[in-house]
């Protein structure tokens, strides 16, 4: 490996903290599997032995939003569910990214009806849209790689003016 050769030669590497942090972040993206409908099954398929999402450092699917930095919204988001998706997004620590997996999530897809949100970008900032209904696991992996590229380019100053969101707790 290149790293060992460098370390035995000089004992140090010159780089920026920004680059190291971005590299670490992108190599172990922990997804929050927001599995809502059909796409959730393909998301599990992406984690199973054949497609093996672990190759990309993202096998740690955590069902609690507080440990995650990537939300995969997999499935049709209805108006009733939108409140929940948004609240879970708010609970994730910064910095965070969102994949809109599948046609329904991206644009409402084939569901032009009274109860389906026509695209989650109406209430969430989406980073990558994965096409397909549902996308094949390969496509989800492709979306993950795209996110990793995006994360790799981030620098500390990108997150300087993050305002912590106000979580409104309904008093019922």
């Amino acid at each position: 490996m290149g790293l060992e050769a460098k370390l035995t030669q000089d004992g140090f590497i010159t780089t920026t903290i920004d680059a190291v942090v971005a590299w670490a972040r992108k190599s172990s993206v922990w997804p929050m599997p927001m599995g809502i409908s059909c796409c959730a099954i393909e998301m599990i398929a992406a984690a199973d032995p054949k497609y093996d999402i672990a190759r990309f450092g993202s096998e740690v699917m955590r069902f609690t939003p507080r440990q995650c930095d990537l939300m995969i919204v997999a499935g049709t988001v209805t108006y009733k569910m939108a409140q929940v998706v948004r609240r879970i997004y708010d609970q994730m620590p910064e910095p965070k990214w969102v994949i809109a997996m599948g046609a329904c999530t991206s644009s409402g897809g084939m569901y032009r009806s009274y109860s389906v949100v026509q695209g989650i970008d109406q209430f969430l900032p989406v980073d990558v849209y994965a096409a397909g209904c549902p996308p094949r696991p390969e496509n989800l992996l492709n979306a993950l790689i795209t996110i990793q590229e995006k994360i790799g380019k981030t620098r500390a100053r990108d997150f300087q003016d993050i305002i912590q969101p106000k979580i409104e707790i309904a008093n019922n």
Partner: peptide
């Protein structure tokens, strides 16, 4: 009739 949450900045 079915309000959505607001998009964060």
């Amino acid at each position: 009739s079915l309000p959505l949450p607001q998009k964060p900045e």
